[in-house]
Design a protein around this nucleic acid. Structure first.
Length: 292
DNA sequence: CGCATCCCCTGCCTGC
DNA sequence: TGCAGGCAGGGGATGC
C-alpha cells in the first residue's frame, strides 16, 4: 500500500505526537520483521527523545537525541495506530498493558501518555537504527534516487536519469535508485496523465542530444502533480480516519487507471478501455489508445 | 552491468 | 460452505 504519498501522510500524522516526545517504554513483540531488529533495540530506544520526524523515499526517519535515527519502512502492509493510553482501563491486578491486535509488532509508549503501535500482517516492513551522522552513507540510502517532490526534479533531470535505458519505462520509474518513492499505483497514474505507454523503453522519451522530449516534459510535471494530489487526499482522509480508530496508513484514493481494468479511459475524447497487463511480475493498468 | 524472475509473508477475494 | 488459486500498493537476491 504505502507509496510516497501514503508514507508522507503517515509521517505527518505521527509528527504531532512524536516530535519532542520521550519514548518511555518499548514493547517489541517478535525478533524480526523483514529484517531482524537491531541489537538491543528496546534499550536503545527507551529514554530517548524524538528530535525530528522526516521522510526520505518511502522511509520514515525519527531522529533521536541519542545521536541515532530510527528508520522505519512500512513494506506492503505496515501501518501505525496512534492512541491515548488513557483510553485503557487496566485491571487492578494487571500492570498497564497495551490492548494489542493481531500483527501488532512494536509499541512505543510516550511520556505524554500516548502510544504508537506498528502493525504489519505481511511483515515486509522493518525498523532499524543507525547513527544519525552516517545516515546518508547507510546502505539503504547510499543508492536511493532523487526525491520526485524535490526542487531538483525536473524534465532535464528526468531525461538524464532515463537516457539510454532499454528497460520498459514503467520498470525504470519503479527503480528506487533512480527516483525514490514511486510505487506501482502512482507510476501507472503518472504514465496515464503523461499519455505515455508503460511498455516503451525508458530511453525513448529522451532525445539523442540528451534533452527531454515532449513526453518527458509531460511526465516530469505529472509525477509531482499526482503525488501532491494524493498527499492532499491522504491528508483529508487521515483526519476522518483518526476520528474512527486512530489508524494511519490505509487510505482510499480515486484513481484514473489503477484497478480500473475494463473501465472507459477517463481522458476526454479518448474512447479507449483501461487494460491490465503484467510487467516484471506486477500489474500495470493503462489505456492502449491514448498512452503511446 | 542491465534486466527479468523469483521470493519473503498473510489476508482477502474469486471461482469451482 | 469449503477450499484452492490468484492477487496485493514493498524490495532484495539471484541468474542470465
Amino acid at each position: 500500500m504505502p507509496e510516497l504519498p501514503e508514507v508522507e501522510t503517515v509521517m505527518r500524522g505521527l509528527a504531532p505526537a512524536l516530535v519532542g516526545a520521550r519514548i518511555s517504554r518499548v514493547e517489541q513483540r517478535r525478533a524480526n520483521l523483514r529484517f531482524a531488529f537491531p541489537e538491543r533495540f528496546v534499550a536503545r530506544l527507551e529514554g530517548t527523545r524524538v528530535k525530528e520526524l522526516t521522510r526520505r523515499a518511502k522511509y520514515i526517519l525519527a531522529e533521536l537525541d541519542s545521536a541515532e535515527t530510527l528508520i522505519m519502512h512500512l513494506g506492503m502492509s505496515g501501518s501505525f495506530r496512534l492512541e491515548d493510553a488513557g483510553e485503557e482501563s487496566p485491571g487492578r491486578f494487571h500492570h498497564p498493558r497495551s490492548k494489542l491486535a493481531a500483527h501488532d509488532h512494536v509499541v512505543l509508549h510516550l511520556s505524554s501518555g500516548k502510544r504508537v503501535t506498528y502493525n504489519d500482517p505481511r511483515r515486509f516492513g522493518f525498523m532499524l537504527l543507525a547513527a544519525s551522522r552516517d545516515l546518508a552513507a547507510h546502505p539503504l540510502f547510499a543508492a536511493v534516487g532523487i526525491e520526485p517532490l524535490g526542487e531538483a526534479f525536473d524534465a532535464p533531470t528526468l531525461a538524464r536519469l532515463l537516457a539510454g535505458k532499454a528497460a520498459p519505462l514503467k520498470a525504470a520509474l519503479l527503480d528506487q535508485t533512480l527516483i525514490a518513492g514511486l510505487g506501482n499505483i502512482y507510476v501507472c497514474e503518472a504514465l496515464h496523465r503523461a499519455a505515455l505507454s508503460p511498455l516503451r523503453s525508458a530511453g525513448s522519451i529522451v532525445a539523442a542530444s540528451g534533452a527531454p522530449k515532449a513526453g518527458a516534459k509531460r511526465l516530469a510535471e505529472a509525477i509531482p502533480a499526482i503525488l501532491h494530489e494524493a498527499i492532499r487526499a491522504g491528508g483529508s482522509t487521515l483526519r476522518d480516519h483518526q476520528g474512527a480508530d486512530g489508524a494511519l496508513g490505509y487510505f482510499q484514493h480515486s484513481f484514473a487507471v489503477y484497478g480500473k481494468e475494463g473501465a472507459a479511459c477517463p481522458r476526454p475524447r479518448c474512447h479507449g478501455t483501461i487494460t491490465r497487463i503484467v510487467q516484471s511480475g506486477r500489474s500495470t493498468f493503462y489505456c492502449p489508445t491514448c498512452q503511446k
